[in-house]
Design a protein around this nucleic acid. Structure first.
Lengths: 323, 323
DNA sequence: TGTTTGCACATCTATATAAATGTATTTGTT
DNA sequence: AACAAATACATTTATATAGATGTGCAAACA
């Protein structure tokens, strides 16, 4: 399948850029396909051959996860509609930046940021208004003269200089030729997401603690004093957070599928630098699966507060790493 | 100009439907073009030859005004893109229903609601799932049989019955033919707006009182104890509200333009059933212009609280109507 | 270990929308 | 009344997006 080929290429690029990359999420339901970290930069990557396939629910979940864990959602693909993604262009899908592998490579490996963004009406470049104005002044060219030379209205040039309008690629090339200098502002892919966060979405997190989760066990964890962000499409049921620790939280009975999931959670938790915990309904055969700590529901019942649980997790995790 | 022709036709339709219609707003900046009321139904109409020309700011203002005054925003036009608006179809522009004059006529004069809505992908009709299911059961047809008869998948029929999917017009016609009954749900134009209000927008109004307005005089009115919704594109500067009264609020120096504005405000206030007040910076030649009460800024300074101002407005308004 | 169920995702289509911009009209100024 | 400045709005274009739906794979089930 094309998507798998893409994923392998993406892993290659990210590793080459010095990222630590998690296992691929191949368990349903899934929101992101890969987690990756380099220093302070944490990415949640979704991969689609056709970026138009991103659905709104998935986007929402990726955004809230990224925000909660201090990372960035990003969409990587090859096509939009019936054409290939253009390199060095940033597209947006539900406020998540979307790009081709080549653009990803340029950005993270070569440190060459893209200049062009796709928007209704075509492809556009942001112009640095101050630079433009200065350049125009330097050759003492009037606004009107530049406008007629470019073949646009005076008002348009004025808007460029005030930073109130982006320009089409042709216009920018022509302008740069006339003034013989670079005018395009480069796009910071990760920041472009932050800007897009509208006040309403941000609002949700203003409240001190999230509302109690619906799930029984998650609610129990909430009662212990954790902030619990439950997820619908991630390989874990929730992310739980208190002042001292954060852990991915799985919940289910012991089964083969559960073990698979615990492996994946372990890999992801290593990348995003959190603990990983699986609450088992009923009996568990083991105490951990890789770095995922398994806790039986009965054990959870005997726990008084968040500190107790933190301690249990740490001990069990240490015990595993000690062998 | 085409827009003016449209407006006259719209006024004709609305009056025929028993609406009281305000003067046309021909002062810039303007958000809506007409206010109209029939019984409890208050409309703020925007008219554009091409409905695509509605801009986001204008839409926002119309929505907040409508909400604040218990009315409905509506957009009426003739074209979208390069084609005429189809009759009996409801379009949406920034969550405001948009329709042709014919559709307006059918809805308000003939009481025939539209059935079709425009959405990405084309024109769609909502199906009443329960009716569909019952009809299918009645002729003891299996879901699969109906699906293959229609030429769609079983899943599609299932979604129709669960009300989770709208159907294209062709499909609905074919279905109604097979089952020999009406299945389409009619669209309540005004309600369709209410549903679109997202929680974020609604949230703004949750706060007991609005934030203080920037304008000096509006802020003074706010200090008196009024709730003040300031506007940017309406023929008045704000709408002020306390427990006992609501008034359109204009602010400016005395001038010809101001008198024109006061006339328009008078007409609008009659339709939306509020008072209308103009605060004059400096000297005013008159005490009222039609039903708009003129108050000098100095007079406002001598007023202690909202009750005082309410009293002044009522007296001056009565005095006018008494002559 | 097949069988069933349901999601992921690709794809197609036509609408909704943002940029860009010219033109006509209105407003404000002298 | 004449002129300048600002705004409304029509229009063009290409992207963003929602519906609709088939296909194939994964999970759940028997």
């Amino acid at each position: 399948m094309t998507k798998d080929i893409l994923i392998h290429q993406i892993i290659e690029v990210l590793e080459r850029a010095g990222f630590m990359v998690s296992d691929q999420c191949n368990i349903r339901p899934r929101s992101f396909d890969l987690a990756a970290r380099q220093g302070n930069t944490l990415l949640f990557c979704k991969v689609l051959y056709n970026i138009d396939g991103l659905n709104e629910e998935t986007a929402r979940e990726m955004k809230s996860l990224a925000k909660y864990l201090n990372g960035y959602p990003i969409l990587i693909g090859a096509k939009t509609r019936d054409q290939l993604l253009e390199d060095s262009v940033v597209y947006m899908r539900y406020d998540i930046p979307a790009l081709s592998i080549q653009t990803l490579y340029d950005y993270f490996v070569e440190n060459v940021p893209p200049l062009v963004s796709a928007a209704p009406g075509g492809l556009y470049v942001s112009i640095d208004g101050d630079v433009l104005k200065e350049a125009r002044m330097n050759i003492s060219m009037s606004l009107g003269a530049l406008a007629s030379e470019l073949g646009v209205s005076r008002r348009t040039i004025s808007k460029y200089e005030e930073g109130k309008m982006d320009a089409s690629i042709d216009i920018v090339l022509h302008l740069e030729e006339i003034l013989d200098m670079a005018l395009a502002k480069s796009i910071d892919i990760l920041r472009s997401f932050e800007k897009e966060l509208d006040p309403a979405t941000v609002n949700e997190d203003t409240s001190e603690r999230k509302t109690p989760p619906n799930d029984n066990i998650l609610n129990l964890i909430y009662t212990l004093g954790y902030d619990v962000l439950s997820t619908k499409q991630a390989p874990f049921k929730a992310v739980s957070k208190d002042t001292s620790s954060t852990f991915l939280t799985g919940v289910s009975e012991y089964s083969n599928a559960m073990v698979k999931r615990a492996h994946l959670m372990s890999s992801i938790s290593n990348v995003i630098e959190t603990q990983s915990v699986f609450i088992i309904e009923g009996k568990s055969r083991y105490k951990f699966v890789e770095d995922t700590v398994l806790i039986e529901r009965d054990e959870l019942n005997n726990i008084a507060d968040a500190d107790d649980l933190d301690t249990l997790i740490h001990e069990r995790s240490k015990r595993h790493k000690g062998e």
